[in-house]
Design a protein around this nucleic acid. Structure first.
Ligand SMILES: [Mn+2]
Ligand SMILES: [Mn+2]
Ligand SMILES: [Mn+2]
Ligand SMILES: [Mn+2]
Lengths: 221, 221
DNA sequence: AAATATTTTTAGACAAACCTAAAAAAAATA
DNA sequence: TATTTTTTTTAGGTTTGTCTAAAAATATTT
């Protein structure tokens, strides 16, 4: 496995995440995601194409090659293991881990990451509930659903939060919702698609459609 | 504290180490240390001068400013804490830690490093026996101690021999011990206070109390 | 003190990763 | 379909950190 720059790695990871939703990714989308300019994206796509990490034809968007996807999973593995380490061992709060992991993920020693994984006890989910790829790049596909799609009055566990902006995390903190929180949906209001949810030992509360669409849960087992 | 590039940090750290010995550092010395070319060093010195990290006059070498020294100690702190982490927690061997720490040292979150320090129990020496600067940049100046007083399994450098008789020097010659020899004490035998010591790439050997009392060492620089 | 050797700096290039502004292609709308 | 808008690419620059080759300064020999 060759060595890639921090920049290349950030592009690869961003494409991976964007194409989960979209299938193929556009220049403007990626530029927005990376806080860069479309012209810079085009430059980088040409380079990543010659390195065979993406499929790309001018004006027709791009997606990762097999090679690119493998690399993305390595970077995501590093990122999430470091997040787990920061939260679990260094007692960083949930919202703080991401920024630091964003740097640590680019330290590329395979041995470092595999030993870290072992030290941490082979965790399967990062502090945000996202699955951690194993040493072979295998990642758990969870059959989680958006809160909007949960049946009423059925206990479920929050397993993922798709928007991880500070604003989102602040709101979740306020509502005391985090990965692992057990809750059930009590009512769906058709007027604004807001939900009434209930968390064990707490009062029922109302959450907006916007918020609910970013929270995913699995049925409790 | 501003943010510096990986390259700037590597230069600052190298100057710090070289000037321990030399006082002032030359262009060629630094180029050799960093496996780069003298012309590149000159370029960088100009930049570090404008950033007030070094004192530099063309053709007359350079040394760190107070600001530069402060930065160097921050980088060394990061480096040695990561080395300790890798050896202690991830069970990397002694020789492996350096290369990985060389990358980790450039992740610049102060909080990360201070929390790591706490997690590790505020270690005072890295796996090579080098002192770790504290959060304020204070570093232990290693004073020389008699071999008898060295902690076990901690690398030290022979710095002084108090008896310099021919007999003594003959014995030292035979054992291949000289000023600058790096060694560690492996065992102390209470019966006769003899020591088992180990020099890199040599077999462990035993030395008498009498001899050990005349050899002084510092924790590795 | 000259001549010679060594060290250091300058001059000019290059690659990586950005940028802005203009041109070209594609998509949307009239 | 023709026109307008949006998206994407190209052209040309900038900054950072590197390099080689040549020039300048310093150090060492004779
Ligand atoms: Mn990153
Ligand atoms: Mn995460
Ligand atoms: Mn380094
Ligand atoms: Mn060390």
């Amino acid at each position: 496995m060759l060595n890639y720059s921090t920049s290349e790695e950030n592009y690869i990871k961003a494409i991976f995440h964007l194409q989960q939703a979209d299938g193929t990714v556009t220049t403007n989308e990626l530029a927005a995601e990376l806080n860069t300019k479309p012209a810079s994206v085009t430059d980088m796509m040409k380079k990543l194409k010659t390195k065979k990490l993406v499929h790309y034809e001018a004006y027709h968007g791009f997606r990762l090659s097999n090679e690119g996807r493998k690399l993305a999973l390595i970077i995501i593995r590093r990122h999430r293991l470091w997040e787990f380490f920061l939260a679990e061992k260094l007692k960083f709060s949930w919202e703080e881990v991401h920024a630091v992991a964003e740097d640590l993920e680019h330290v590329s020693s395979k041995k470092l990451i595999d030993k870290l994984d072992e030290f941490l006890g082979f965790p399967r989910f990062d502090p945000h509930g996202d699955p951690i790829p194993d040493a072979n790049g295998k990642i758990e596909t969870s059959k989680q659903v958006c809160l909007q799609d949960l049946p009423l009055n059925t206990l479920a566990v929050v397993s993922h939060v798709s928007d991880q902006s500070n604003e989102m995390l602040e709101l979740l903190g306020h509502k005391k919702i985090r990965i692992g929180t057990k809750l059930e949906v009590r009512k769906k209001f058709n007027f604004d698609h807001s939900l009434e949810i209930k968390i064990r030992q707490q009062q029922a509360m109302n959450i907006s459609e916007q918020l609910s669409k970013n929270i995913f849960a699995k049925y409790d087992e």
